[in-house]
Structure formats: C-alpha cells, structure tokens
Design a protein around this nucleic acid. Structure first.
Lengths: 201, 201
DNA sequence: TGAACCGTCTCACAATCTGAGATAGCGTTC
DNA sequence: GAACGCTATCTCAGATTGTGAGACGGTTCA
C-alpha cells in the first residue's frame, strides 16, 4: 500500500519535530511534490498540523502523550477542589495504568503511584474504561477494589472514544456511601476540561 | 487522496470499538475486500491491531500515548531501585517536556511536575534528546540545569530514533560528582525495558 | 453434512497517484 | 524597484497502483 507507506514516512519524519517542507521531503525520502501532497492530505484528517508560522507538525490526532501533559494541571486542580487524591488512568489490555496522580493533603488519603497497574474489573475507573457509561457523566464505587476506599470517575473521550478515566478517591468515611453526590459533578467537569484541552492542542 | 480517505474511514469506524471485518466494512462504507486490505496495511504500521481473538481494534499508535502507558510502571520501578526521583522526557520543538514523573521518598528530592517544559540545552536528558550518544548507554550532568542537582539519563529508541529520555535526578550530595557510576547502569536498563515494552505493544 | 458464518486471496481493469517542472508569493539585498 | 533566493503550491501526461466482485479454505453451529 504505497500511499500509506509514504504517509507513515511523513509522520515518522515529523516525529523529530516541526519542519518546513524543504526539510520534510528529504527526511521522509520523498520528492517535494509528493511530500507536500501527502502532508496536506494528512492535515485534512488531523494527523498533521501547522505550527506558529508555516512549518508542518504532528497533528492533534497523534500527539497522544499530550493527554498526560494537558491533563496534569487539571488533575491537580481536581485534587484541590475536592481535597481528595485524584488520578488519571488509561487502559492497557485488560488492566488499567495510573499515568497521573495528585495526592490529597489529608493525612488519611488514597495513594496510587504513577505507573501502578490496577485491575480493570474493579473500581469506578475500571468501569469507565470498560465502556460503562452513565447518564450522569460519572460513575462511583464503594469498597469495590479496596476496603474502606470509595471513588468517583468520569470518562475522557477523544475522537469519540474513551481514552482515559479521571478519578477522585478517598476514605469512605469522608466520601460517604454515595460519593457521586458529593463529587460527581466536579469530576465530570474535570473530564470535560481535559477533553477540551485535548482538542486545543 | 482516496487511499487516505478510506483509511481514515476505517479508523473512524474502529473508534466505535472492536469489530470483525464483516461489521467494519459497512461501517466504513467500503467493500469487504477493500476494508480488509486497508485494515491489514494499517496494522503493519501500528494504526490498527487485533484483539483477543480476531477482531480489528485501533492500534497502539492511536490509543493515548503508548509511550507513557508502557513506561509508567518502568519509571516507577526506576525510582524504587534508585531511591531518587525519576522522569521521562520527550522532545517538543527545541524544548523538552516532562511526561512522566515518580518522586523519591527522600525529603530532599528533585520535583519535576508532569507537563513542565525544560530547556533542551541543559541537563542530561537534554543531551540525550539532542542526539548525543555515549558508548556507555547513559549520560550524566552535574549542576548543569540547576545548582545542587545532578542527573543521569538514557535514551529510549523506537524505529531507530530517540523518542524519549529516562532520567533519575537528585541532590549532588547523594548522587556524587560522578552520578553515572552509581546509577548509569540501572537507568540504561530502564531505557531498554521501555524499548522492549514499546516493541511488544 | 451442509449451511452460515468468518478472514484471506486473486486478477483484469482503469482510476488514481506520481513527480519533474512551472508558478506564485514573500522577504532580502543591491 | 528590480533582481534575487527562498518558500509553498499547482499542473499534467503517463503508468503504477489500488480496486472490488467473487472464489477459496477455515471455523462453528444445527
């Protein structure tokens, strides 16, 4: 599939950073006209973009690591607004990985290390990443994954697909038996803020 | 660019979730043979994948950041093995962005927030991302970016290109004036572990 | 055993992509 | 202000390339 191979060559070349066409073409091993045609076509689909002035860059559809960078301040803000530990999870196979964590200032708090691998089957974030949706925009769980711990999560969608789950979690004693009533709305807001931030990058 | 339009139609269709070819073809508005040919070609480039048994899914290249999710547990492990703060950086233009951080348990420690933008010109991770290679597999810097701080970094390569730098950093008093001697090997190991994990996904 | 699925492959045909070169725009420099 | 060097963008005739109905071989059902 020649067109695809060449398109990928363009994307791979752009992975090195922003570059003008004159640099892109040789980097992708293509004639200028061809590189240009492909770059423009990819741009129309969101795989390529232009930066400040003129140069070609990887498009919003491929800068996945942006998820973590754009979500970081929002997850920290969620922790501040709720006073509880906040995390961001992404799915990997049939597990979920914590890729971002902000810890509650309380001395009794949930601690999930960045990099932890957790089961997809348990916890509110697991539900989200398994595709469970709810009309309220959030999902809660109480003592599902760990005794004494409750959590509320919301899904972050990008291009119509759930790519991550934002959560707050803490002791049942503080969150109560219906944690969504207390924090559901803010968690949902945070998820939407991340979606918006992803669109802007 | 017909081939691209059709490829994107396939990807968009797959955004709805895993599906067999018989479902994918009509969803993408394409004949079965065409959808199949494109899906297979996209698979070869990591844009499409197969799930548990048979069905087509969005590939690692499109689902969040592969790099961050596979690297997260490894960076956390590096922190545990060295006792020092560990980070993962990627290049963006002529800066570097911290996309993953695990903090040392020591009370005197380096803190780099996920999302921070740092100069490419200074620090061991900067050297790596600028393309400096070393025969030992790691690069160290002492008080280059910030007074009192030393760091050791190693490059993570994918498809023959450096895509990220893993680092440990901490006070010169603990790491010494030749931090590589103490941690170079583990950092290099972590980088290789990430490379392996990237290949497997 | 046969029907109803599935993914994969084939092949003649022409639509589609190709890429050297022409063109148009935009700052500099003389 | 004209001549330059540097971009991105467009053109066009030609053939490589992708096309897709249908055949094929493998499952899993009843």
């Amino acid at each position: 599939m020649g067109v695809l191979d060449k398109s990928v060559a363009v994307l791979d070349a752009l992975a090195a950073g922003p570059m003008p066409l004159t640099e892109l073409a040789p980097a992708a091993g293509l004639p200028r006209a061809t590189a240009h045609r492909l770059a423009v076509a990819l741009e129309a689909h969101g795989f390529v973009d232009r930066d400040g002035e003129g140069r070609f860059v990887l498009g919003p559809r491929l800068v996945g690591s942006d998820l973590v960078t754009v979500a970081a301040p929002i997850v920290a803000g969620l922790r501040d607004r709720t006073g509880e530990s906040a995390q961001l999870y992404v799915r990997r196979g049939d597990t979920r990985v914590c890729v971002l964590a902000a810890e509650s200032p309380h001395s009794l708090r949930t601690i999930v290390a960045v990099g932890s691998v957790l089961p997809l089957a348990r916890g509110s974030a697991g539900k989200i990443l398994r595709g469970d949706t709810s009309s309220s925009g959030w999902v809660a769980s109480v003592e599902e994954r760990e005794a004494g711990v409750a959590s509320v999560s919301a899904g972050v969608a990008s291009h119509g697909e759930i790519v991550a789950a934002v959560s707050v979690s803490g002791p049942v004693d503080r969150l109560g038996r219906a944690p969504g009533r207390k924090h559901g709305a803010v968690v949902h807001d945070a998820a939407q803020a991340i979606e918006r931030a992803l669109r802007h990058s």
